[in-house]
Write a protein that binds this DNA or RNA. Structure first.
Lengths: 213, 213
DNA sequence: TTTTTTTATTTTGTATACAATATATTACAC
DNA sequence: GTGTAATATATTGTATACAAAATAAAAAAA
């Protein structure tokens, strides 16, 4: 299995970001149990920082705690996935709008570069890879929004959203076309357009979700 | 000082809900430090469940951790408060819309009762009391929305929003009038109207915030 | 005095210890 | 064999222990 990097100060953050990344990589899948001692040993820490990390992850809906029975990767029902899309449908357009307003030129270039390098992804059908790309794309936009709460909020929820998405309910090509429209709207500094195309993009995902069971 | 009730199974939840309630009551104010041993002793627990609780609270922006220096009640800048209002402006109308759609008759009655009992609050100028009322009002609506993520999300952020609000930037009477309109729109099962009046209500708060420093 | 340096105390972050519960395994009845 | 009771093992939740760092207090220098 792939070795994960550690980007943190405290051991708790180390655990936290490791689990997050493993979920995004689909090395941890919904319903899977997280045994504290196992994670602790794998990362070379005690169970104390594990507890803090899991508590944080729980608040982000990435894991769910069943008292006395442990922590499990959050498994979303269809209803929950739809409900989360409704939230994203409200928040991501705001992020895109603000990105168009407040994003730096460097960020906008980065965003354009990202979508231009993504064409190959549409063909490969590498689900985990596409997931990470999709996550990073939305994350960059939201970080450009200069609203840290908004940014953190959406990034968190997008992880578990992607984690619970099945490959049939994604149209890789359509998604990447959407990303291009969004990137261009943001790069051209058009808040209204950015908001609108982002809304369409998320709505597209919601329709796919509802259709494919 | 008032004695707080405990509504939980684990000790970590006990600490978690206690701190939350104390923030809402303004017994803990922005910038104030939370010394782990003090909280532990006050609640009769060890420092272990404190850590988990603080980690959760941090993810909800109720507290902020400064490595090796401890946890502090989150102190928001004006910009952050405005940014949070922008988020609420997107999410709360969704909650109101869904409350009108999915709320039970019992909940709707409860909501109407709540606003009818609130007239006295406009006069008293008891800030902590008004805060709690405002919190409970919005919380009920969001719990009626049958979108648990949305509900939890907004409730969390409303606590720290209220905690960081100063009395000058609230118009008690106007706020309660707004609540009445919202409650009536929801109770009459009108999603479009509910969404609109909620949007107006939050926008009113945002204007007050921007005006009063 | 006021400022700086040194020493003592407090507080944090992590590791370990332990009791209570949950899960797995074995033994036994049918 | 299959199902149930008894036992053993593993896992959790909490408490305690301890080293490292931060803060406070005391001593020394200006």
């Amino acid at each position: 299995m792939k070795q994960y990097k550690v980007e943190s100060v405290g051991l708790s953050d180390k655990v936290y970001s490791n689990i997050k990344e493993m979920i995004l990589n689909r090395d941890l899948i919904p319903g899977q149990k997280l045994v504290q001692e196992e994670v602790a040993e794998r990362l070379g820490v005690s169970r104390t920082p594990i507890l803090s990390a899991f508590s944080k992850l729980e608040k982000e809906w990435l894991v769910k705690n069943f008292p006395r029975r442990g922590y499990y990767i959050y498994e979303m029902s269809l209803e929950e996935r739809i409900n989360l899309f409704e939230i994203r449908l409200r928040l991501e357009p705001l992020g895109a709008r603000r990105a168009a307003e407040f994003g730096t030129e460097e960020d906008k270039d980065e965003l354009l570069k990202m979508v231009n390098n993504a064409d190959s992804l549409a063909e490969t059908k590498d689900f985990a890879k596409f997931n990470k790309h999709d996550y990073e794309f939305h994350k960059l936009i939201n970080s450009m929004s200069r609203n840290e709460m908004l940014s953190n909020m959406i990034s968190s929820y997008n992880i578990i959203s992607l984690s619970n998405q099945n490959i049939e309910s994604i149209d890789f090509k359509l998604s990447i076309i959407g990303h291009k429209k969004i990137a261009q709207a943001i790069a051209s500094g058009n808040p209204d357009l950015a908001e609108e195309v982002m809304k369409n993009h998320i709505e597209g995902g919601l329709v796919m979700l509802k259709d494919h069971k």
